[in-house]
Write a protein that binds this DNA or RNA. Structure first.
Lengths: 329, 329
DNA sequence: ACCTATCACTAGAGCGCTCTAGGGCCAGGC
DNA sequence: GCCTGGCCCTAGAGCGCTCTAGTGATAGGT
């Protein structure tokens, strides 16, 4: 259990018969030690099970090279993003500190924790906080918002071209011969406004009448929207705010005996793991999680390095993934 | 963006005209300062926007009061547990450091990160690593495994009585008049063996023939199991390894025209958010996430405090939550 | 008057590391 | 022979905090 004391540089130095500084050099793979000594020090370190203390290291280095990430623990898509963030950060020599938003832990708590940990920059996944609050944070340290549009010059944004995503969805459906296409809305959720707009524009471009149904970002919201559609009359197809919402909708309409894709086409959004499940096989608009995270981390690092950046907002193109919930009419 | 320098204790001290130590006392709410000075120091701190540096604080305090948590970013139930862990840890004055297991970041990486951060103890949610590896970790620091049984005297375990959970599920189904009850197995997943065993025992107790179908912990595994059941003949009801797997199964059997709960009863496991969704309304065996996390954190702290513990393994009773996927036959 | 106790506060060491300066030592150039 | 420039290494300061030991000052007891 709790050993006597965790070994420190000093211990390794004593065992290898060298100075503390030399051990530090070896551990950091810094120049300034002969191969022989290097080997000897490394062996000594291994023997006593030395592990560098990240905190002390950061303290003395002056910088933490730590990227704070706020994510929603219940969002499948955030999981995909976190995966990408770890990868991208490592590539640039940064560490990631995760702080979760949970049902009983709000964004402010999550952010406060990261600030205490001396994160150098913040990456916020689909944050719900007001723009003014984001701006206040951005005054303290670089802030990169992912998957939500923010109109403020101090806040960097990396997001998918959500309007374009809905255009793709509508085009896809129109191409399959659908005319009456409804959109289940995301309300105030991040990205919802853009998707709504893209939907409206695409419908207009085809001379079709738009039909908006209130929705949200959870399965339950989708289920509720499904009930509305069933009660008020089914369209040919429906584009849904996100995959979670779409699966809720799917479940309810199918149980009501509606043939999908025969009678009703359904298009989701995110291409989360959910959509890819073989039995769901949801046609969806894919967000490129790896690209989004790569850009987010790169941007954060650019800000930290004081590099000038051309575009405050980076917009990644979405991609339509046709699966089994859409078919020719 | 990056201000000139983050303010330190020294800065606050200078502004308030007191010593660094006094400021420390005030910030920590420690005894040893007059109310007047306290007020003055606090104001000075506010004025320059001082925030304590968690790292320096931990370094000097000798202990980190940091609990490392390894969780699977894609597991809905882990999300519930993380929520509980934050709460329980805060109550005992500990902080939580999260480290995610993602598709491209394995458990070893996750654990290594936490060790570097000087976590005092590890809480591992449904870890997949071998017992020997867990034991090796436990030799370095207290390790509490949640939601998986581990037979090793150095590793603490907090889990649900999974065999009892399956007994509840079977009793429930038998009580509703079902006789042919199958179990979709979790294979090598944490908890699967106990659930399998509980299922077998309960079936035997009722003189019923068990029927095991290979499954797993994802929706896809459930979908595959459903196809097997459909091909080989439906039972009256089925108990499923977990909720995710159950929803996959549900989706496939329903689309095949099977009436649930009329023709087939389905019982899940975990009572994750998934099961609670109104349109899913899955009958399931609830794991008490709050209790599990409370116990896990308490145990970790006991170990750190060197308190003797009676039971290495803490087993929490499950509870059956009857919803709409089961009904009298 | 003196001694002691208490309170408010400060000096300074130290947590485990990094990093700058600088000290030997040897090879090579003059 | 001496200087120069590497190379390998060490001493020691310092990161921002906590905490122990101790200093004055005031109050209370005799």
């Amino acid at each position: 259990m709790a050993g006597p004391r965790r070994p420190t540089l000093e211990d390794v130095a004593a065992r290898a018969g060298v100075s503390r500084a030399l051990v530090s050099i070896v551990i950091r793979d810094a120049p300034g030690a002969s191969p022989r000594t290097r080997e000897r020090v490394r062996r000594a370190a291994d023997e006593i099970g030395y592990r560098p203390d990240a905190r002390a290291r950061l303290l003395s280095r002056g910088r933490s090279r730590l990227l704070g990430v706020v994510f929603g623990v219940q969002h499948a898509f955030h999981g995909d993003l976190v995966d990408g963030l770890y990868l991208a950060a490592e590539r640039l020599g940064y560490d990631v500190a995760l702080s979760a938003v949970t049902p009983r832990r709000d964004e402010e708590r999550a952010v406060a924790g990261l600030l205490q940990d001396r994160c150098e920059a913040l990456v916020l996944l689909g944050p719900g906080m007001p723009t003014s609050r984001l701006a206040a944070l951005a005054a303290q340290l670089p802030v990169v918002v992912v998957a939500r549009a923010v109109r403020h010059r101090a806040v960097d944004v990396v997001r998918t071209a959500d309007d374009e995503g809905l255009r793709l969805a509508v085009e896809h459906l129109v191409g399959l011969g659908h005319r009456r296409i409804a959109h289940v809305d995301g309300g105030r959720a991040p990205g919802a406004a853009e998707r709504r707009r893209g939907y409206g524009a695409a419908m207009a471009a085809h001379g079709l009448d738009p039909r908006l149904v209130p929705g949200g970002l959870t399965e339950d919201d989708g289920a509720a929207a499904a009930r509305v559609l069933l009660a008020e009359g089914l369209p040919d197809a429906v584009t849904v705010f996100n995959d979670r919402c779409a699966t809720g909708l799917l479940d309810v309409v199918r149980r009501a005996g509606v043939d999908v894709p025969g009678r009703l086409g359904v298009v989701g959004y995110d291409d989360s793991r959910l959509a890819r499940l073989s039995h769901v096989a949801l046609t969806t608009v894919a967000q490129d999680a790896d690209r989004l995270t790569e850009l987010a981390v790169t941007r954060a690092v650019q800000r930290l390095d004081g590099e000038p950046v051309a575009e405050r907002e980076l917009v990644v193109a979405p991609r339509l993934v046709a699966r089994s919930t859409t078919a020719p009419r």
